[in-house]
Design a protein around this nucleic acid. Structure first.
Lengths: 143, 143
DNA sequence: ATCTGTGCAAAATCTTTGCATTAGC
DNA sequence: GCTAATGCAAAGATTTTGCACAGAT
């Protein structure tokens, strides 16, 4: 059925998904789009540089505030640090999942969770959650 | 043989384990001891405060340099961040392992690795390594 | 005696915050 | 129109670095 994709709403407020409710500015819309299109992990500064291409004049403070909002909404997630900067990635999956990071080019993909928290035996801790990051080479970086 | 323990050398160089080869100062010895005795994750500043109790006058730069050396030697490891500060923990195990962090008091314990990197299917990545942190409640924080 | 490690302080980074202005709803 | 969001710049915080000096081997 043609209408299924109902492409109409042009920019179909990706911002809604990225920030939840609230006022949606053109800057935040642009930031969300760029964050979603990054194929690798990015820092606040990477985001600023990429967003400025299409939205000159945007400030770093705006990016930080948008990043905080996107993280709160679960649209992006912290995956580590590079130097002193925090790295984020856009999450495709919504529920519990993890990330696979390419040690070659830095590309990041979502990964299903296959961890059976059998580590309960570890010191008598009652495991309530976990965080897993896999490292490897993405298809294009494999020899 | 009698001399084996050569008790004299009091502090049996824990520093050797912490920093590998090289010159071992009393400050680094103190830092390594404090790091080892921390029951929870600590930041560089936590370490400084704790070391200053027994070693007044020590500087933060020294702590940072010691932390870098201990991390390189595998004596401590980064387990996350608290606010803007990096958190470290002393590793009891030497080989591949992970950590269990108590969400109640912050206590940290080493955990064996039980991850079967079956996530190879994740986007065609060739998995070469991973990083896992478990969260839960330690025996004393369990209801 | 040599050379690593130390301490102090300044520098470099990254991130947050205050305030007047702009723009969503 | 009311308020959230923005942008600039200053403030904060953490981590790194330069340099002269002390201590370990």
């Amino acid at each position: 059925m043609a209408g299924s994709k109902s492409g109409s709403q042009a920019s179909t407020t990706i911002g809604r998904t990225a920030y939840g409710d609230g006022r949606l500015s053109s800057q935040r819309e642009a930031i969300a789009r760029v964050a979603r299109d990054f194929s690798a992990a990015f820092s606040a500064d990477d985001l600023l540089a990429a967003v400025r291409v299409g939205t000159p004049g945007i400030g770093i403070a705006t990016v930080y505030r948008a990043v905080a909002a996107m993280e709160a909404a679960g649209f992006i997630e912290v995956v580590g640090v590079r130097g002193n900067a925090t790295l984020y990635v856009h999450c495709v999956q919504e529920g519990h999942h993890h990330h696979v990071v390419c040690t070659g080019c830095g590309a990041v993909a979502d990964a299903e969770c296959s961890v059976k928290a059998t580590a309960t035996e570890a010191g008598g801790f009652a495991i309530t959650g976990h965080d897993l990051t896999l490292y490897g080479l993405c298809p294009r970086c494999q020899p």
